[in-house]
Design a protein around this nucleic acid. Structure first.
Length: 463
DNA sequence: CACTAGTGCAA
DNA sequence: TATTGCACTAGTG
């Protein structure tokens, strides 16, 4: 790709000369500082340019979505989200105590002390000293990841202890200690950095801290979420799209059953389970629904029997039957996948609802695995990227309405299909209406869009 | 100090 | 041998 600009040169020069990283620069005058910080952020967020313009091939998207969104994101970054340091500190201490206890047990079982955090040293203990049978290889040795340890736990008591230790170590280092260090002492908030230029699909990314991967599945994770709080007089409002990617798949593919499921406002995973297992929806068990949910995710990712089997712990044979059954009932999805790949090979790229473009050179590869990877990209990107388009547009529309209606409510986070707001309590009802209305009405599809919402004094309650 | 590998968190 | 990310620790040079 020829470069239109010299290295470092940009179409949009900074409005104000200032240091990189707004919250680290020291200015005396508060207003000057505010303007410089905001300008720095907008500059970073719009500094996309020739690569972006050429690669997307769509100037409209850039003008109508990404430039206006930069201002929204700048406001979000500056607003930040308040974090209660005491919750994180006590959680950290509690986890340290538990880790010490587990650590001593591990050393006793192993018969020696070693660095539990080192996969290399752990692998030596498990596979050489104890003599357990390796399950999978990595490039440099034997894998000790969660799936492997879970299997090994059936034969020996050590792997289970390692799993407990790992869970605590992960949460403590990444989410308790690291997050504490990123609280801005002046604002009492964490101010993430969003990027519009990192991902290949059009999603945002978040860093320093990454607020798009805060734990949610485990109890420990939920307790981390309790540390994200609203300011006095405010509550947190969370609104998330329900099944947006599957709804987009229904829209793009025109698949009859999938479309009908959403039009009837049915539970799509239960519906899929009933199709895969050949039962009435009322006879679907929670375990069947769980497996069907994995199938639905798999469809969007470009499923393989191996991957599905690995994900839900069944045989490859069984996984293949699930997939075959799914495509038997969903001819529309099947032909959408095939047509998308054929078209992508023809023109060299795929597109989203707002004409975002991603080139897929992998499709022309001689290497089968590379080419198949290209095919999964070709299927996944229009779906994932369209979801990104839609929430971005909704964010712009919501922000405009909040301003126009003179509300103090602030958008503070985006997590791919969820938006988080800090809302003065007296504005809650009206803000919630605006948010849900704008999210559900952002683009008219052949199936309805649904946004669920929740409210609380912290992210756990609101989520 | 810069980099890679393995691991694991989210949508 | 399922998509997109960020970031931790260990280990190497």
């Amino acid at each position: 790709m020829p470069s239109l600009l010299a290295t470092g040169e940009t179409i949009f020069p900074p409005l104000v000369k200032g240091g990189e990283g707004g919250f680290e620069t020291g200015f005396c005058d508060e207003m000057t500082r505010y303007i410089c910080q905001r300008a720095d952020i907008i500059f970073r967020l719009t500094g996309i340019l020739e690569k972006k313009l050429v690669e997307t091939g769509v100037l409209d998207l850039f003008r109508n979505v990404e430039i206006p969104l930069a201002e929204v994101l700048a406001d979000m970054e500056m607003a930040g989200i308040r974090v209660n340091p005491h919750i994180l500190m006590s959680l950290s201490k509690e986890m340290e105590r538990d880790m010490n206890i587990i650590c001593r047990r591990i050393y006793t079982i192993a018969g020696e002390e070693f660095n539990i955090n080192s996969p290399k040293q752990l692998s030596n203990i498990l596979f050489n000293k104890i003599g357990l049978k390796p399950i999978r290889k990595t490039r440099t040795g034997y894998s000790t990841d969660e799936g492997v340890l879970t299997e090994l736990a059936l034969q020996h008591e050590l792997p289970a202890e390692i799993l407990s230790y790992r869970q605590l170590a992960k949460i403590k280092s990444t989410y308790a200690d690291a997050l504490l260090s990123l609280i801005n002492p002046e604002t009492g908030c964490v101010h993430t950095s969003f990027s519009q230029t990192v991902t290949t699909t059009g999603r945002l990314s978040s860093s320093k801290p990454n607020l798009q991967n805060i734990p949610i599945r485990t109890e420990m994770g939920q307790r981390i979420r309790e540390a994200f709080i609203s300011k006095d007089g405010c509550v947190l409002l969370s609104a998330d799209y329900s099944q947006i990617e599957l709804r987009i798949l229904a829209h793009m593919s025109g698949d009859e059953l999938l479309t009908e499921a959403f039009r009837q406002n049915e539970d799509v995973h239960t519906r899929t389970a009933s199709e895969i297992f050949g039962l009435r929806p009322s006879d679907v068990t929670p375990e069947m629904r769980r497996r069907a949910k994995a199938v639905n995710f798999g469809i969007v990712y470009g499923i393989s029997p191996y991957g599905l089997a690995l994900d839900i712990g069944i045989s490859q044979q069984e996984a293949k039957e699930y997939i075959d059954n799914y495509f038997l009932r969903h001819r529309g999805v099947k032909s959408f996948i095939e047509d998308t790949i054929v078209k992508a090979k023809e023109v060299g790229y795929v597109t989203t609802l707002l004409n975002r473009r991603r080139y897929v050179p992998e499709l022309a590869s001689e290497d089968n695995s590379v080419r198949q990877f290209g095919e999964r990209i070709a299927v996944n990107t229009p779906v994932q990227g369209s979801a990104a388009d839609m929430i971005k547009l909704a964010m712009i529309n919501i922000q405009r309405r909040l301003v126009r209606e003179g509300l103090k409510a602030k958008m503070i986070l985006q997590v791919h299909d969820e938006l988080l707001f800090e809302v003065p309590e007296e504005e809650l009802a009206v803000t919630k209406n605006i948010v849900v209305e704008e999210m559900e009405g952002v683009i008219l599809l052949t199936v309805p869009l649904k946004a669920d919402s929740g409210v609380g004094k912290n992210w756990r309650e609101a989520g």
